[in-house]
Design a protein around this nucleic acid. Structure first.
Lengths: 246, 246
DNA sequence: ACCTGAACACCGTTCAAGT
DNA sequence: ACCTGAACACCGTTCAAGT
């Protein structure tokens, strides 16, 4: 909910400025947030340095004074989105909860972000990571730091904390990415809709099983499925923790 | 191994043609395969309609007679890569193996694809799915059909087959995508290398836990980790199957 | 210090014209 | 039927010039 304040209609937030090009009108944060809402509303291809510039009432080339090109803009937006996790209760100050509650909140906090920004979430998995040497690699080292230090302070050995990071991160990414692309494709189609009528039709001759199971396959249990899977993973982690260093 | 025959050096397969622009020189498959190797070797941004055209010794605009634009080109390449699974033993003719062996082979077959094409694999998760109504959505319906029909023929109920599809697909995607971005970032950097010397350095003041665990975090256990996780998932599926319809 | 405007080197795609 | 070439409407980015 925190970041959405900047994602509303472009009506009110223009007020405090003296004009579209008033002094102080441009800074990195304002650029990033405007880019974020364009991405949310219109998708990847609509986010253009030139359009973003004119959108902010400024010569497009002025952006380069605050942001290191388009690539850097995307990285900045991705980090901005992930930053919302910082204010999630139980992650902000993890010392108040046990490790399994921490994992639970982290999982659901991350899921909320993926739901809020389905068009952007794939970037979290796809952007070049801040620490490429990390296996698996990750953007936002602060998140990994928080993750590991929380587990260690709860009695995990170094080894089991690392194993947990690996199990948990790939689980989370897989689940949320699939959910996000489902939602992204759904809310997509600003102009593009390749098969408007064939949508949802399955050729029963080619794919008999698929066709007969169609009803079951299209029901959306994602909330329930996610929670089940999260529980499974936490169970696995419990086993990891119990066997400690080996 | 099957598709690599076309992805190798451009020495032998050029023979039957009379010249770079000889008649019949251009067809959809040749375009897709050339695009695939460019993507593998030079990454996303290097794949340009214009460059692909001249690369094939043809006016770039000729491509549009065989491929519906760049977006369609990417979809075609993604499908081409996934098609390699069709020849994987145990998936080609699944009736010869049990369900757990099938899942095992499917998992490892998919992993091989992700390893072979780390720059392309993210597209599998990211391209608009062929069946958006499917939860989770998926490209290549044939794969889902094969998956479900195999399970059903091994005695899975409809319900447990669907549940298995959900558990398995998100597991597989998460693991392989993280591995692929690791490899992709590694083999990337054709020109771009933002932090050549800071690479691998962690600020111990900012991230003390990360810094102290560095050695353990950078070891690559991915083969072992994948196999372990695959085993876990197959165990979960066993439980799903046993409890049948509910 | 920050913004501007022209310029450069590209893109994807359409379409009339060729063969 | 297939390929070509010019054209259109865009891109990201650099850089000298303004204020």
């Amino acid at each position: 909910m925190a970041s959405d304040s900047a994602a509303g209609e472009p009506s009110a937030p223009r007020e405090p400025r003296e004009g579209p090009t008033g002094r102080g009108a441009l800074d990195r944060d304002r650029i990033l947030r405007r880019g974020l809402t364009i991405l949310d509303e219109q998708g990847m291809r609509a986010l253009t340095m030139r359009k973003l510039g004119t959108d902010l009432g400024v010569d497009p080339m002025a952006l380069y004074h605050h942001v290191p090109g388009r690539e850097g803009l995307l990285d900045g937006i991705t980090d901005l989105v992930l930053d919302d996790l910082r204010t999630t209760p139980g992650i902000e100050i993890p010392s108040t909860v046990g490790w399994s509650e921490y994992l639970h909140r982290l999982g659901h906090g991350m899921r909320e972000i993926a739901q809020r920004h389905p068009r952007i979430f794939p970037l979290v998995a796809t952007r070049p990571p801040e620490a490429p040497w990390l296996r698996p690699p990750m953007r936002s080292l602060w998140l990994v730091e928080s993750f590991l230090s929380t587990l260690v302070s709860r009695g995990f050995t170094e080894r089991s904390a690392i194993a947990t990071y690996r199990v948990f991160s790939s689980f989370l990414l897989g689940h949320l990415l699939l959910e996000a692309t489902a939602r992204g494709a759904e809310s997509a189609a600003p102009i593009e809709e390749p098969h408007p009528q064939s949508a949802g039709h399955v050729d029963a001759a080619l794919y008999p099983t698929l066709a007969s199971m169609r009803d079951g396959l299209q029901v959306d249990h994602s909330e329930q499925d996610f929670d089940d899977a999260l529980g499974q993973i936490i169970g696995q982690v419990e086993a990891l923790r119990a066997q400690g260093d080996r």
